[in-house]
Design a binder for these strands. Structure first.
Lengths: 230, 230
DNA sequence: GTGTACATATCGCAT
DNA sequence: ATGCGATGTGTACAC
């Protein structure tokens, strides 16, 4: 990892073109060759960047350039033809350090957990729901949960952390395919999420898809309560 | 901007919980208070982070902690109740620098520009197109452009930098809703992008949606040519 | 403030 | 490679 604080101007030409006028910024070059230009604010996203793989060549200023206060020009090029040019006018601080490979991150609390909890107790979606299968396969991908309701009617369930329009589209596609299967037909749909956006709800209801909002912590509570009973 | 390279362990508890085992990483604290933990690879996204606003308190190790090799514990807390805890075992390098406010980024070539250019001259999509409205509202969100063709028929236009299947789905939804309005019906659709992926084109054509590929530089050229006429 | 769509999104997985 | 889904998405813009 190489870190430089420098007064610089930056130009990117690739998927779009962008220009950064002269200012003091942090330049970060990682071991895999990716480069990021950070301002002193604005969350974690850099102003400009180039992902690996790419090649970095640093052109030292010759005499004439030095007159124009240019110390270095960094050329970062990717195989796809993207290009980032950093003109370094002045280096204010610098740091270099070996870091080794990171052991990586352990996460908890994402959609998979929500799906597990609902699979363990589908009645938390609607009374009498019985699980047929998790990740029920269709030609266009697996449905999160397939259940049957009290009347024995098949119910396809799409689980999301945040319910937005895309999720309704996804469930609609699954329903289209599931309803071609004479063994399953008719299949109705239920959209389950911790939060459902109004426009997603409009679209879902317009298509006869039910909407259920669930609480992750509450589900986890119910789950642990039920475990206590055994 | 404060930058530290340190052997550390990291725990995040907020929208999810996550843990990073001990390793050498770069810690970045920006002037606005946001904090990022970077590994020496993996593009520009940090392993963990906390966006502004938040408060950072650094707890120096007391004697007992020092026995366990802990030098500092950083507590980052956001008003939303998210929390990032960085246990610093050893500081390997450090850097601190004032950078001032960044003058900001000038971008060119994003969808908004494309939409502006097309709104200014819809005939670059098809001869005789007249603009009715940009961001024409529907119950499920705004359509990029609504035009009328030479026959006075309404045309909904979805603009994308890169035309993929999602964009066709989006336009299809708008068309479904627009075609319920007796004042507009019938509404046809045109999908406009700098590049249209083959599968997106197949889907669009299957649904009777037209596809138009436009060249950004050329549009800008036409635009400046027309400006010259005035 | 809320809600929606865009992003040089990134990232991972399956085909 | 391409498509598709998830992300602690983040961010700007409209209502």
């Amino acid at each position: 990892m190489h870190v430089v604080i420098a007064r610089c101007t930056v130009d990117y030409d690739g998927r779009l073109t962008a220009h950064l006028p002269e200012a003091v910024r942090l330049l970060m070059v990682k071991a895999d060759g990716c480069v990021a230009v950070h301002a002193d604010g604005g969350a974690y996203k850099p102003l400009n960047w180039m992902n690996a793989p790419n090649t970095l060549t640093i052109e030292q200023a010759d005499g004439e350039s030095a007159e124009h206060e240019t110390a270095q020009v960094w050329h970062v090029r990717s195989p796809k033809g993207e290009q980032l040019t950093i003109t370094v006018h002045e280096v204010l601080a610098e740091m270099d350090h070996e870091m080794g490979i990171d052991p990586g991150l352990v996460k908890d609390g994402v959609e998979a957990h929500l799906q597990e909890l609902l699979a363990a107790d589908p009645t938390s979606i609607d009374d009498g729901f019985r699980l047929v299968r998790r990740e029920f396969p269709t030609d266009i991908g697996p449905v999160d949960l397939l259940c049957r309701d009290t009347d024995g009617v098949a119910v396809a369930i799409e689980v999301k952390r945040r319910g937005e329009i895309d999720g309704v589209e996804q469930l609609t596609r699954y329903l289209d395919f599931l309803n071609r299967d004479p063994m399953l037909r008719p299949v109705r749909g239920v959209f389950v999420a911790q939060e459902i956006k109004p426009q997603a709800r409009v679209l879902a209801e317009d298509r006869g898809i039910g909407c259920v909002v669930v609480d992750y912590d509450e589900l986890r509570g119910i789950e642990s309560d039920e475990l206590k009973l055994f």
